[in-house]
Design a protein around this nucleic acid. Structure first.
Length: 657
DNA sequence: AACGACATAGTTTTT
DNA sequence: CTATGTCGTT
């Protein structure tokens, strides 16, 4: 994905790729060929006959892991790459938990609780304690519990500690783990159990960590346990691109490395192969306002190129229309594809205006993130069944599954069943199977439970497609979808989603995976279903854009209060917002446009907005403020900018500056 | 038990 | 303006 002007590695890249053993820190600026260095390094290790099983590379996103894998497949072939451990932090953590489940009170085939499940679990904990259970309260408590679990905050609040313990106990009872557990539990396993530690250290004899600036303290502890002392640890990161502080990422980890690894070698990659000189100069001048830096200046390998445009619009709708029109014009004029364009915004609600404008103009677009495949009701329903088949202890999955399709079981009956299960110390599903469970709906519950036992049998011993089809049929899910849909089209669409999950499952099953590993994969790799949309303009948040690059980038919503976001300012995170802006700008290869709307609709009310202070921090020499309705002036300004740029390049070449 | 009508409160970023 | 939660009705 990153374009590299030459196939040869530059000196710094070469040193990083061929570094022989011992801890290594690669400080890699935006567009400096970071991914290439990691993949080439792994390739070199394999070609040096390091066993694949001794190599582990962790990333923060599935996208990054997938890309690394794809690149290596080209170089090493599928067989070798299959044996390499290339995955996200969370997936690695889950592998460890699965292998040593007993040590943390779990059984194999555990469920993963993503946000909706976490909420339900927390809601039931709060209800038990007679505390308020409105969504707001649940969110707040969950966040505090998460902070406590991941060591970000000390236990100052006793109530939270009690809640956290109850919540953890509930998850354990349901044989489930949440996202935090994927890091916390392995940490416990590796700390407490010397044998497990030795095993995983041997699997991480060559340990590589990507996007290290986004690691939390726990993740760093995790790294140190897996790669202690003088290990062959390679971490790659960029202090200027640390944008997950709100999720516990600590740039400090980058500085701390030198203390924890005295033999650490540091290599800086400062050659940028991506952006034009103006874009880089603008980005550099912005980030120079930060004080919390290691200090690094990117050098461009391309010409100065065009100036960074700044646009102002009256309203957000007008902004969207203007950007859309410009994309159409540029594409036509420069024989570019739709996917050479990207619109970036600070907050996802900004996407809406662009979606409407592009739909109106017939511009094909794709919104990354947002309503995902997994948020659809039919997928959630199906996943509930699958989870229950895979883990009978998952009471939450049972509650969802049993109410779709409707079986006349509601909160009343479930409460009685829950009471009974509590007395018997078993799961809801097991309770329903007990002969001495009596209730007016007992036969319905029992039939439901028996059906799941039958389905499980086929999943364990039968063919993957038979099992899936049996589930669809016997559960009544397919029928429910077909009868409840408004029209034929909707039914087809929903069944299409079901079928695409089916294909995914078959593919997984063919490569030897079971239901439980399928579900874990699905839950940790939610973005993977988003098939890379070719030939569409990409709309996404700045966070989602990290690691990507586009020929033409529009950073929209450049208003004071939205970017930098005012909540972030209140929380003292101006520098992080600036890094975010830096990430946004450095996505662009040839053309960067920053735009803002002078007014915004908020809850139906119109509010005046001012330009982002970041606009003043960017070197004015590379900015070109372009007014609306002045296309010709824009051209003039552009050509003047080009002349200026050309002159500057000449001066530089002659060494006159 | 399930659905629909109302009120109400709230817009950051996500593995 | 909208998504979510609460309440009252079938």
């Amino acid at each position: 994905m990153e374009e590299v002007s030459s196939n040869q590695l530059n000196e710094a890249q070469y040193k990083a790729v061929h570094h022989r053993g011992g801890p290594l820190l690669v400080l890699a600026g935006a567009g400096s060929g970071k991914t290439r260095v990691i993949t080439e390094r792994i390739g070199a290790l394999v070609e040096r006959d390091v066993p694949e099983d001794a190599i582990t590379a962790v990333t923060f996103t599935n996208k990054a892991a997938r890309e690394m894998r794809e690149r290596l497949e080209k170089r090493l072939g599928e067989d070798k790459v299959k044996r390499l451990r290339i995955c996200t932090f969370h997936a690695l953590g889950l592998m460890i938990i699965r292998e040593h489940a007993k040590l943390v009170g779990r059984r194999a085939r555990m469920s993963i609780f993503a946000v909706p499940e976490q909420k339900s679990a927390m809601r039931s904990v709060l209800a038990d304690l007679k505390l308020p259970t409105d969504g707001d309260q649940v969110d707040r408590v969950l966040q505090k519990v998460s902070m406590l679990k991941s060591g970000m905050s000390q236990a100052q609040d006793n109530a939270i500690t009690v809640i956290a313990d109850k919540y953890d106990a509930l998850l354990q009872k349901m044989n489930a783990v949440d996202f935090d557990d994927c890091i916390v539990l392995p940490l416990r396993i590796l700390t407490d159990d010397a044998e497990a530690r030795a095993l995983w250290q041997s699997r991480c004899r060559h340990f590589l960590v990507d996007e290290y600036q986004d690691s939390s303290r726990m993740q760093y502890d995790f790294v140190r346990l897996l790669a202690p002392g003088n290990a062959n640890l390679t971490v790659v990161g960029d202090d200027d691109q640390s944008i997950y502080g709100w999720r516990g990422a600590e740039i400090k980890n980058l500085f701390q490395l030198e203390r924890d690894y005295p033999t650490l070698e540091v290599i800086k990659l400062e050659e940028n192969y991506r952006s034009t000189g103006s874009i880089l100069q603008g980005s550099n001048s912005l980030i120079a306002h930060n004080s919390e830096r290691l200090g690094k200046t990117l050098r461009s390998n391309l010409g100065l190129g065009k100036k960074i445009r700044v646009w102002q619009a009256e309203t957000a709708d007008e902004e969207a229309e203007r950007v859309t029109a410009e994309i159409r014009a540029q594409r036509a004029g420069n024989k570019l594809g739709w996917d050479d364009f990207c619109v970036l915004y600070r907050a996802s609600f900004r996407a809406r205006a662009f979606e409407m404008a592009m739909r109106e103009a017939g511009v094909p677009y794709h919104v990354s993130g947002g309503m995902s495949f997994f948020d659809r009701a039919e997928i959630q329903d199906l996943l509930a069944y699958l989870k229950l088949v895979g883990n009978f202890s998952d009471d939450l999955a049972l509650m969802r599954a049993i109410s779709r399709p409707r079986r006349g079981i509601g909160s009343k009956a479930l409460e009685v069943l829950g009471q009974f299960a509590h007395e018997k110390q078993c799961s809801l599903l097991e309770a329903a199977l007990e002969d001495d469970f009596t209730h007016s709906k007992a036969h319905v519950l029992r039939a439901f439970a028996k059906m799941l036992v039958d389905i499980e049998h086929v999943f364990l011993h039968g063919e993957a497609d038979d099992a899936f089809d049996m589930l669809l049929d016997e559960s009544g899910l397919e029928e429910a979808i077909r009868t409840e849909a408004e029209d034929e089209d909707e039914a087809e669409r929903r069944m299409g989603n079901i079928m695409s999950l089916r294909r995914w499952w078959l593919r997984h099953s063919e490569s030897g995976g079971d239901l439980s590993s399928f579900l874990q994969h699905v839950y940790l790799a939610a973005d993977e279903q988003d098939d890379e949309p070719d030939g569409q303009v990409r709309l996404m948040t700045v966070h989602a854009a990290k690691g990507l690059e586009f020929s033409h980038v529009f950073v929209v919503g450049m208003e004071a209060g939205t970017f930098p976001h005012k909540n972030a300012l209140e929380e003292n995170r101006l520098e992080e917002e600036r890094r975010l802006m830096y990430v946004a700008m450095t996505r662009a290869r040839h053309r960067l446009t920053l735009s803002f709307a002078k007014s915004q609709k908020k809850f139906g009310q119109v509010e005046k907005m001012g330009p982002s202070p970041f606009l003043k921090e960017i070197d004015a020499d590379v900015l070109n403020w372009v007014d609306k309705d002045s296309g010709s002036e824009e051209d003039k300004a552009e050509s003047k900018a080009e002349v200026d740029a050309h002159m500057a390049a000449m001066r530089e070449m002659l060494g006159l500056d």
